[in-house]
Design a protein around this nucleic acid. Structure first.
Lengths: 208, 208
DNA sequence: GTCTATAGCCGGATAGAC
DNA sequence: GTCTATCCGGCTATAGAC
């Protein structure tokens, strides 16, 4: 183990991830970060050119760590549906245990400029997104892998994203934020849809 | 003909909604808003106590308009599955046509404090959320209405939320952001689950 | 590498004329 | 109701000592 001696630069990034994800870029000052690290603001500029550079470094770091884990799950040799189940569980686990990461993602969807989006898509997510799409195509050869992949992600992540609001909505239980409960619900939905009599489905296709 | 003369207060709110949803609370200055309206910053303080008050007024205004439309759909006398189909289409339509609204929601999930969350949950969303849950319970009496309702919302809204990133991911097509395409995909998923070795895409050819 | 000190700017908000 | 003028605090970033 040689990675024990963390340098100041890494410590700064760690604190930045936490602070930026909690409050967003504009609401975190260089003073805040320096204070959290335990140095003076001026010292920060020895390690990073400016605030924006530090922010980008934080995002990159935070994102690439998760990518590795998810890619590994998709590479396993397992039956498709089981692999999907494990993927859902892993995704829910990662998103739950690392809330800062998830919030950074949410913020990027709102505030990320084109360049950053393209960078994230191509350099970070593309590979696993394709892999997930391929898995879904194996399960259903006629599916639209792009749409279906996003649907998987949405089902898992949106539950966590809306947690602050859901807590005040009727019918809320603590289990609704637990990895197992969410995974189970999502997997069931994907396997069976909303359980119902499929007799009348065609009625619903007509439009006035 | 008395509603034609919009007062300054309303004009300020309209511009605030747009600006806040585009850039977020911290990134919009009182000067920006005043400039957009065409008045001086000081004049703004005649109509609103401070920036925070103006922000809350904007949110409330923006949210309550949508609530009415969705509630109406759920009150109709229709077969359950058809009602669900219409709800999905309406939700997708609202979220697509009013992007500022959707972005304000996203931002509230990230930055809203407890008080604001509780206010939104109880005063704005509770009623329709319950109604949607009841509809889902009719479709599947054994479902968890809270989880299932969120799943519906997630499937529709997450596609739009991730649009900026998806555009750079392989397999992306323009249709993926269209109301009909999203509605159809979500409805099919809910009816049949993932392994849809099945029916139509023919119905999607309708023009809304 | 980290500090003190400070430049220079932009933010929210107020006072008071008209 | 809207204006001009201004206060004051917080922000990013830099200069230069140690």
């Amino acid at each position: 183990m040689d990675a024990i001696k963390e340098n100041t630069r890494q410590i700064i990034i760690d604190h930045s991830i936490k602070l930026f994800s909690q409050s967003g870029y504009a609401n975190v000052s260089v003073r805040d970060i320096a204070s959290a690290v335990g140095i003076k603001p001026a010292s920060l500029y020895y390690h990073f050119e400016n605030k924006q550079t530090l922010y980008l470094a934080s995002i990159k770091e935070s994102f690439s760590l998760k990518a590795i884990v998810l890619a590994e799950v998709l590479r396993r040799q397992e039956p498709e549906t089981l692999k999907l189940k494990h993927y859902i569980e892993t995704l829910a686990g990662l998103a739950t245990e690392d809330e800062p990461f998830r919030r950074l993602m949410q913020r990027e969807m709102l505030d990320g400029d084109e360049k950053r989006m393209q960078y994230l898509a191509e350099e970070v997510f593309q590979e696993q997104f394709d892999a997930l799409g391929m898995l879904l195509t194996e399960i259903d050869p006629q599916c639209d892998p792009h749409m279906s992949a996003i649907s998987i992600l949405s089902l898992v992540l949106y539950h966590l994203e809306t947690a602050p609001l859901r807590g005040f909505l009727r019918g809320y239980k603590k289990e609704h934020n637990q990895v197992n409960y969410i995974s189970q619900h999502v997997f069931n939905l994907l396997m069976n849809g909303l359980p119902m009599n499929h007799i009348n489905v065609n009625d619903a296709s007509e439009t006035a």
